[in-house]
């Protein structure tokens, strides 16, 4: 059976759901070897066993996090060779994609990003052109590198647990010489709301909120949703840039996207038009957002959103 290398960066105390998805997809393709970076805690090793991992690799260097991706790519190239991997799986974060990019060149391997499903023969499925096409793609090289989007599959433990051993992989010396160094890092305060990128429901506000995200947040909290925004709202400084949905912000595919005071420019649609259900609230009946809304309300968001939030609280008791 083919060998699959799964990269898990800084697993921490417990594996994230997206990491469990990688392990599940990896196991469908072959024997999975995990390459970790950062500390390997007992609970994480136990989860690897539960997911059928055959062995775990760790880097010889402890400072990979101090640089932008090049040393991580060098480490993974060495790990892939050590594991005899024909597929390398990484998460689809921007860092995951960059590591995949450099790794692809090091391994002479085709790279496919934004993957949502992988067939047994390695064919990867993804959507392109802002969600307007679904495509299947395949690497033509002996090794392929795939980055898997979070929430693509349901994680499943292996039918039989394994007892993976650990070993160390020497990080090639050339990895860090040509890398940008991180000189300082400030952490942001967490909002306490679900993570925008993989929330089940998103309530987003645009220029129409006119500086006041209160009604958007109130409805989001009533629905247990994440808060999103258009670029007009983030550029105005009403909300952090992390909340931006669209071509240059996040791409989201929630079960429900509520768009309030957003006109629906092409760059905004690029980030949300694959949502299952779209609800739009806008004062202007001619607004292009209504062309893609399943339920549209021509009205003032300052009336509609608080009324809806109250009604939800009432029904939920």
């Amino acid at each position: 059976m083919a060998n699959v290398l799964v990269f898990i960066d800084n697993p921490g105390d417990a594996l994230k759901k997206s990491s469990l998805e990688l392990l599940t997809v990896g196991r469908d393709l072959g024997e999975t070897v995990v390459a970790v970076n950062g500390e390997l805690r007992p609970a994480v090793l136990a989860a690897f066993a539960e997911y059928g991992v055959t062995s775990v690799l760790q880097p010889s260097a402890a400072d990979l996090d101090d640089y932008l991706v090049a040393p991580k790519a060098a480490y993974l190239a060495a790990a892939a060779t050590a594991a005899g991997a024909s597929t390398v799986l990484l998460e689809n974060s921007s860092e995951g994609k960059e590591i995949a990019a450099r790794l692809g060149i090091r391994l002479n391997a085709g790279v496919i990003t934004d993957v949502v499903a992988v067939d047994a023969d390695g064919t990867a499925h993804k959507s392109v052109l802002a969600g307007s096409y679904t495509t299947a793609a395949k690497a033509t090289t002996p090794v392929s590198v795939l980055t898997l989007k979070a929430n693509s599959i349901t994680p499943e433990p292996a039918p039989a647990a394994t007892a993976p051993g650990t070993s160390t992989v020497e990080v090639p010396a050339d990895g860090g010489s040509a890398a940008a160094r991180i000189t300082s890092r400030e952490h942001k305060v967490a909002s306490g709301r679900p993570d925008l990128a993989d929330a089940r429901i998103v309530v987003a506000g645009g220029r129409g909120v006119d500086g006041d995200f209160g009604p958007v947040e109130e409805l989001a909290d009533a629905l247990g949703a994440a808060v999103g925004a258009s670029r007009a709202a983030t550029d105005a400084g009403w909300i952090s840039h992390d909340a931006q949905v669209g071509q240059t912000g996040k791409t989201v595919s929630p079960q429900l996207y509520v768009s309030a005071g957003i006109s629906g420019a092409i760059q905004q649609k690029a980030g949300m038009q694959t949502a299952k259900v779209i609800v739009a609230i806008n004062k202007d009946a001619e607004s292009p957002i209504f062309e893609i809304a399943d339920f549209g309300i021509i009205g003032d968001l300052f009336d509609v959103l608080p009324q809806a939030a109250q009604e939800i609280k009432k029904r939920k008791g």
């Binding site: 209504f290 893609i292 809304a293 399943d294 339920f295 309300i297 021509i298």
Partner: peptide, 9 residues
């Protein structure tokens, strides 16, 4: 995508 139900408040 096609437009669904549109109502006026």
């Amino acid at each position: 995508r096609t437009a669904g139900t549109i109502i006026t408040d």
